[in-house]
Design a protein around this nucleic acid. Sequence first.
RNA 1: GCCACUGUAGCUCAGUGGUAGAGCACUCGAUUCGUAAUCGAGCGGUCGUCGGUUCAAUCCCGACCAGUGGCUCCA
Length: 640
Amino acid sequence: MSPIRLTLPDGSVREVPEGTTSRQVAQSIGAGLARAALAARVDGQIRDLDRPLTQDARFAILTEKDPDALEVLRHSAAHILATAVRELFPTAGIGFGPPIEDGFYYDFEVERPFTPEDLEAIEKRMAEVTGKDYPFIREVVDRPEANRRFKDDPLKLERIADLGPDETITVYTDGPFVDLCRGPHLPSTGRLKHFKLLSAAGAYWRGDSRRQMLQRIYGTAWFRKEELEAYTHRLEEAKKRDHRKLGKELDLFLFHPFAPGAAFWTERGTSLYNTLNQFMRELQRDGYQEIRTPLLYNKGLWEISGHWGKYKENMFLVHNNETGEQDMSLKPMNCPSHHILYGLGKHSYKELPIRYSTYDVLHRNEVSGALSGLTRVRQFSQDDCHIYLMESQIPEEVRRLTEFILGYYRTFGLEATLKFATRPEQRIGDDGMWDRAEAALRAALEATGLPYELKPGDGAFYGPKIDFDVADSIGRKWQLGTIQLDYAAPERFDLHYVGEDNHEHRPVIIHRAVNGSFERFIAILIEHFAGAFPLWLSPEQVRVLPISDQQAEAAARVNETLRTAGIRSTLDAGSQTLNYRIRDGEIGKVPYMAIVGQREAEAGTVAIRVRGAGNKQEIIPVAEFTARLTAAIAARSLTP
RNA sequence: GCCACUGUAGCUCAGUGGUAGAGCACUCGAUUCGUAAUCGAGCGGUCGUCGGUUCAAUCCCGACCAGUGGCUCCA
């Protein structure tokens, strides 16, 4: 056998006989590395340790430290889960079992759904499977052999049938369990040590609601105990921050069965909503035209926009008494109404870009099972904007928008990452148009200097787009803003502008949202800040507390002074003890408590207690306190 | 929409085949207090809705409504 050359991560080259396994290479490098080895990276591809090496390659041993190793661990964990389920439920059919972010799942076809007790038993059995330390054995099989091995697993047979003719079919065995799988896997089941099953839920076979429902088990797996604990801690933290829980506790919004998917905003929630809206209005004071358009339309509009054909399921249709038919609908999007308004006038190139912004209420008929708190609702408002412009204006406009959006997020301490989605297979317009549109978007992206992820083929059928993902304070990602180029709508709505040449031309449209929707953005803010909003956003910015009735009047005057300065201040002069009222303020996450005792009443000062800072009080004149708050509010300071 | 689970006072939750409790909140009284719960009394629920089984249903069964976790979809 001829030797092959392996280039190691440190640049050194090692010659080994062809057919040597990665495990053997690891051993030859060092016993410690061999013990730590989980898999190998061969020319960038992750492989099982025991696969023989066949040609020259860049080579690295994968240990726990490698981020890609987690995927291998979790994929193997899924197999171990299936091994356990098959032992406890021998007739269970097996679907797919991939690694996912933070864990893994496996889908089973069983007679009855899994109960929490089942999960406990399965988890216990998984521990036995890892205890036995079965090696994961990879085999390449031909199609007839694969069909024979899985003759009792219809789901696997279906998968095999879908494999292309040149695809290598591999099966993996760990102890009693055999699975069709591309791999790679851990060397043996004993390498999985820290895992936990989390939940069971129904899931359609292949995500298709017309197919049978399988039972999915979710789990998580980590290399180190502390990581598993940190992860379960993170789940608990997320639960504590859940906007549905905090929304109730902080009295921000409520839901009622009579209006599923539509929030009732309390005074405090409305304050939050309006503060955000005010901020957006202020940012869009120049260069934008805020407009309001009807909420209810004849189907004629939806026929032009294409919604009647493609989006009807998601629209709330309204019965028209005159025609006796459901030929009207509440608007699910603002775009068509904006296009109508644009089309009603004649526009010169000198007016462009025309930026229509709106906060109108939208309705989308989401299926009942999809509704969830404020993040998934049927009634909401977007901070929507449609920009009508000439193609030549796209680069500059996109650059402005990107800066605008990123600056907006920064106000909340949110960092965004960008995604650039290009032409999909199904699209309108010629390649020249797409070339120009994508180049313009890309140039704008490059100009930000920020890294972005390329999503080829993920654009809308009418144009490419930039999406903005935001990570909150506990690392969860949310897709928020979007900038989409649209070449189709101007055609459909027959929109023009008069050019320098005195002829009519088609404008291009940019769809832009920053918040996504106020509802969802507020949910994210609640969770991001864990309900402790920065001063400028807080529904109640200050609570004034007299120490006893003797200072009630002085405290009322302080409260009046603050309110006159435009600060959202309240007075809590109840008959409860001071301790009680302070506790109440802390639980209510009020940024500042201003305490007025005899000394303060006489000196015209307040003792300030900052949220979360304990009793490290500062005593300052009321005027100074007012000035300080006013400045912090104007600056939209993040602290406190 | 589909699968599973859940629904008891404003909130968090206990409980039983013989028509219900706790803590907090609220109301009233006393307390006037210097930085995270003062004491006492009281008010408050046709046990999600409708139907069935039963001498008797909040409890068992069914349907519906809503919520939760997923699937799907998306802002």
